[in-house]
């Protein structure tokens, strides 16, 4: 129905006797109107921070401090972005973030399928008990470990390197192990049987038969690991002391350490940090949604 038609029927409805209005309403206004309005309001609320950031990034300092705030910037102050990038060693921080993210995602891609395979496609005594312990570690708050971990990494000489963040990624993560395990359990046993009959050992079966089938699940793990690594805050704060080693999460503080905070520059930099995640999300939306819901198969 076009807008004009809707408008016409709305006007027509007004002329009818009041008691027939309800019946008419049900006929012309689609049932989905209410839910749709609610959903639009919810989306507006959830995207408001994003809009706030993106508009502030394009405002002049003067415009940003006016009340009421402008929902659309009066002009597009593109220079904010170049100023923001030059204000702090943005390039260095960006490269550090990329190195950390790549290392952690790589570790996740290698370790979790391997571990999950051992917890799903081989039937050994005590397997499910040990898997219970894997799952239980989800409920240990990371900050409980930071003091001891710091001391351990300090004794290893790893402070001020990326190793304390990247190396643990190569030893698996309970969420990702769970996710991969769910996927492996869904593959029929005959596939492994066939490989075994062809003379493949367990590792060959894993590497050449099962892993290629699990590519979508590995993609989910890599994407989630990368997004988490990109936003990692506490670990780099603890383990990195040299400014030249900072990732963006820690480096962003620098906009505030000068006495006057330049919020438009801060928001321009934030936009640059958030955009890769948004791009990744748009490109791999299906993987994100599927990845989250894997965990819900069994509560």
């Amino acid at each position: 129905m076009t807008v004009a038609q809707k408008e016409a029927s709305r006007l027509a409805a007004r002329r009818r006797p009041a008691r027939r209005w309800g019946r008419f309403f049900n006929k012309t206004v689609p049932e989905s109107l209410g839910p749709r309005l609610i959903l639009i309001v919810m989306c507006a609320l959830f995207l408001l921070p994003f809009w706030s950031m993106a508009t502030a990034a394009f405002k002049t300092t003067q415009e940003l401090s006016t009340f009421p705030p402008t929902f659309f910037p009066l002009g597009l102050e593109w220079s904010n972005f170049s100023t923001a990038v030059n204000y702090i060693p943005f390039g260095t921080f960006f490269i550090n973030s990329v190195i950390l993210t790549t290392g952690i995602a790589l570790g996740a891609a290698i370790s979790n399928p391997l571990i999950a395979y051992g917890f799903s496609r081989i039937n050994w005594p005590g397997r499910d008990v040990l898997f219970g312990i894997v799952m239980a570690t989800i409920f240990i708050p990371f900050p409980v470990l930071i003091v001891a971990l710091f001391d351990i990494f300090a004794k290893l000489g790893w402070i001020n390197t990326f190793l304390p963040m990247i190396v643990p990624a190569f030893f698996g993560n309970p969420f990702f192990i769970f996710l991969m395990r769910q996927f492996f359990r869904g593959l029929p046993g005959e596939i492994s049987e066939a490989a075994r009959i062809d003379g493949a050992n367990e590792f060959q079966t894993f590497l050449y038969v099962i892993l290629p089938l699990a590519r979508p699940a590995v993609a989910v793990v890599v994407i989630f690991a990368a997004v988490a690594a990109w936003g990692e805050f506490l670990a780099p704060l603890l383990y990195l002391q040299d400014e030249a080693k900072y990732p963006l999460s820690i480096g962003l503080q620098f906009y505030r350490q000068e006495h006057a905070v330049s919020y438009n520059l801060l928001m321009a930099a934030s936009t640059l940090i958030v955009l890769p995640v948004v791009a990744l999300f748009i490109a791999f939306q299906r993987f994100f949604i599927e990845g989250v819901t894997v965990g819900s198969v069994k509560g």
Partner: peptide
């Protein structure tokens, strides 16, 4: 998608955004 998106954005960036968003003078 729109409702899910903020949950994958870096928390540190969202916090900085909140400083602007909740500013009593110029926040939305």
């Amino acid at each position: 998608a729109a409702i899910y998106l903020p949950s994958i954005l870096p928390l540190f960036a969202l916090t900085f955004i909140f400083i602007v968003l909740l500013n009593p003078r110029f926040g939305f």
